[in-house]
Amino acid sequence: MPFDIDIALTRGTARIEARFAVPGGLTALFGTSGAGKTSVLGAIAGLITPERGSIRVNDEVLFDHSARIDLKPERRACGYVFQDSRLFPHRTVRDNLLYGWRRAPTQRRWMALEEACEFLGIGHLLARMPRTLSGGEMQRVAIGRALLSGPRFLLMDEPLSSLDEDRRGGIMHVIERIRDELELPILYVSHDHREVDRLADHIVQMGPEGCTVRPGPAQGRKAGPDLTPSDAPLALRARLRSVHPTPTSA
């Protein structure tokens, strides 16, 4: 299972429990604000330490309280796209994009800078500073930065929420391509029905009574003519598979 989560943690006075296992594709973590969706992403990324339980991604144990396993964030190979892009303001777009790439072991780099620029349409922004970018451009660069770090899965925390309606479509299309062409497992936090309807293979509903998993509207979709991957993404996907093989159970 790409995501096999069973954790409990406390944020402030709120007790958050999350327990779900989902196969690949894009899984939407859905729930009211304050349900702890972002905290779950933080725990998977290793930024928050749960009080008990375990976190497995692609059959690798990232955290196991009883076995005292707690991989550091930098060892988890997770691509985290934040709600607020979090580009480094003192570095150019190019240096932002290459920040994780430079730190990834050579054999884990399944994407090159030129490929990320082409995939996201950000080649013309490389020399710019983040503060000169529009919201949509920032989020594209943030996604590129996460992909270039050679991740085996993506965590996305409401990546569309800071964008206006016009820009959302473009970013949503990028996310669909990551899901379909690269087949990178994505855990996607959202409270917006329309996003979830369009994107999710599975929906994890987080609530006070625990998590329920149900199939999402996007499941069973067939790649239409407009979704047929060209050769470039196929090569990319093959490289991704050789770096991070899909577990046999998926």
Partner: peptide, 21 residues
């Protein structure tokens, strides 16, 4: 912004690397 430091950690920088960069 501590959140930028967290972002650096998820991108593979260790505690010292995050401090330095």
């Amino acid at each position: 912004d501590r959140r930028l430091e967290n972002a650096a950690r998820t991108l593979g920088a260790g505690a010292w690397g995050t401090f330095a960069t």
